[in-house]
Simulated assay, not measured.
Amino acid sequence: MYREFVVPDDQEILETIGEWPGTEEESGARHLTLQGEENESITFSYDALARSVRVRWKNRSGEEIIDVFREGATCMKVHSDKSTTHISLDFHMGECSGRMEIRLFPSFAIKDHLLFT
């Protein structure tokens, strides 16, 4: 069964995260590159039609420390308040469902759970 991947519009992402998503030429996927403390960066890309996301986290030396690609995304939300800014993603893939939380402020952190339902 096909499920739609619901994503916030670009304006909501800009207002919440402070960055306007770019578009990858070849695939048409949207992407954000965010700078953290001490020259760390997270590149987050998402493709609403393919229902996929990719998160790449590089440390201050430019080494990739996390590279996660996941399909089956159903919902993306962006949140910000005085103490934190993050992206949350829900996934449903057959017998599995899960959630990924990407904290962008005050420091980078990623929590990812994918479990049998």
Results as ranks from 00 to 15, higher is better:
R70I: 03
A29E: 05
V78H: 01
G94W: 01
F116G: 01
W20C: 00
G36P: 07
F91K: 10
V6P: 05
R99N: 03
W57V: 06
E24Q: 15
G94I: 04
D10V: 00
M93T: 13
V68W: 11
P106S: 09
G62W: 10
N59Q: 05
D47Q: 08
E95D: 12
Q11R: 14
S45G: 04
E64N: 06
H86W: 15
V7S: 02
I65D: 06
R70K: 14
I110L: 13
T33P: 10
E25Y: 05
L114T: 00
D9Q: 10
I66R: 15
E40C: 07
M1P: 03
F108V: 10
R51Y: 04
T84C: 13
M76I: 12
H31R: 09
F108L: 13
E19Q: 12
W57L: 14
Q35R: 13
E19H: 14
M1F: 05
D9A: 06
T84W: 02
K58A: 13
E4P: 00
D9Y: 06
M76L: 11
Q35G: 08
R99P: 00
F108G: 10
I17C: 04
F116V: 04
K77G: 06
N39G: 06
V53N: 06
F108M: 14
R56A: 03
D10N: 12
A73I: 14
R54D: 02
T74K: 15
I102G: 01
E101S: 03
V7Q: 01
G18R: 00
F108Y: 14
E24P: 04
M100C: 11
E63C: 06
F44Y: 15
L104P: 05
E40I: 01
T43C: 09
I87R: 07
I65R: 12
E19R: 09
L114C: 01
S41P: 06
S107E: 07
R56Y: 00
R54C: 09
S61F: 13
L89I: 15
D90N: 10
I110F: 09
P106N: 11
D47S: 07
S41H: 10
G62V: 05
R70Y: 11
F44L: 04
E71F: 14
S80E: 12
E25A: 10
E95Y: 12
E24H: 15
A29P: 07
F5Y: 15
K111T: 14
E12N: 05
R70T: 08
H31I: 03
E40W: 13
L89C: 08
R60W: 14
F91G: 05
M93D: 11
P21N: 08
R30W: 09
P106I: 08
I102R: 04
M100I: 08
M93Y: 05
L14P: 02
I87A: 05
I17S: 04
H113G: 04
G62K: 14
T84S: 15
V6L: 07
L104Y: 02
H79W: 14
T33R: 15
T117V: 12
E37L: 12
L14H: 06
G98C: 03
T33M: 09
E37F: 13
M93F: 08
L114Y: 10
K111H: 11
S107W: 07
R3K: 11
L32R: 04
L115K: 13
